[in-house]
Amino acid sequence: MSVDPEIFAKVKEALIDALGVDDDEVTEEATMVGDLGAESIDFLDIVFKLEKSFDITIPREELFPDDILTNADYIADGKLTADGLAQLKERMQFVDLTKFEADPQVQNFGNLLTVRDLCSYVATKKA
């Protein structure tokens, strides 16, 4: 899926600003946590910056589905259950969950989100 260059440019600006990363580190493939070093409070910063930059409202749970990932009904042995995965896929249609589905360890979820996912998400909000 290609990313709208205008959206990418603004997302990149927000990430550089919020995370103090270099221009060339923010690629479409970069993961937010693993590659860019985002911590939980940074996500809030990023959400605020994107809301301002794109004039959109971002309900926190749409980008960070903690309510699903910490719901005991959806977790077994540290993994998300089929029901949980279904909920997640419904909620986060902008993320490619194929890899995560193969081994849905809840602790791996944090490193799933890429810059491309973030751009796709913004595109859905702007549409």
Binding site: I41, L44, D45, V47, F48, E51, K52, R60
Partner: peptide, 10 residues
């Protein structure tokens, strides 16, 4: 105070 949400604020 700027934008704020349940877990924090700017």
């Amino acid at each position: 105070l700027g934008p704020q949400e349940g877990i924090g604020a700017v």
